[in-house]
Design a protein around this nucleic acid. Sequence first.
DNA 1: CCGCAGGATACTG
DNA 2: CAGTATCCTGCG
Length: 293
Amino acid sequence: MSNAAFSEWYSWSESPYFDRQSFYETFDGGQSFAWVRSDSFIEGTVLEHSFRLKLNQNKIVFSIPRSSKPEKAQAVLANYLATDSDFEAMRARFPWRSDPILSQAINAFPHLRILRQPLSETLLGFLCSSSKQITQIKEILSLSAKKYGQAISSNQYALPTWEQLAHISETNLRQLKLGYRARYISQTAQFIQAHPEWLEQLTKLDTAQAKNELTRLPGVGEKIADCVALFALSKMDAFPIDTWIEKILTRAYGLHGYSKAQLAQFSQIHFGPDAGYAQQFLFAAARAQIIPL
DNA sequence: CCGCAGGATACTG
DNA sequence: CAGTATCCTGCG
């Protein structure tokens, strides 16, 4: 229906190289809740930028609303995909020679990347995530965007900003199927409004400092702080331990009886400074039932 | 109808 | 500290 509103497909010569599995897993594998798959492309928004993406000869080609500038869109994409990061070098430093589990996971998604998502959106997304399945998180965010976000194109809406969220009552937030998370989001919005420089200032901190700041927010514990650090701040040593990773480490790696702190310590030592990137391979492979649990 | 889901938090021992 | 109930909602 909204095809007419979208441009032709633009090629992007600087696009990272992707195989099909790695492409879908990178955008729609749990790092981001923004992307919807259709038959021939994925569609989603990054802040106020709307995109359709697909692969052509292992490179991303993109289509955008006709009102948008392709040069700007390409710059947004480059940042979103962290094209300045050398993921190949990170993979090479992993202990894959001695770790058949990780090795198998990398083979299944060889060109998987860690996105660099906008901080505000990443925080919002993972504040919605506790005890929710990915489809439910997407539903919540989609409802939020439609109801409170800025309209971008015919059928696309940006997520509400924290400034906008600060003006929504907890009761109205609950209408978005947020449940008890509505209070976290409301209070976080108030906090950010009261500390206007706080979010931006996070980008200047190291991983431990950033996580320390993030966990001051209501509803942000260790796991969500790790997700924000990894997926928005490009902190490759941040290692989110969710139920999947916990199962992988305890069962596939045999670390029975380890506490989460012990699992985190093992992972940092075993996987090294880019442990968060390794985590994403394990997560993807476990969900694809490549790693038996 | 009940158990549980990509967690955080307050409370207990 | 480690373990546990509670928080909402929707899906299986």
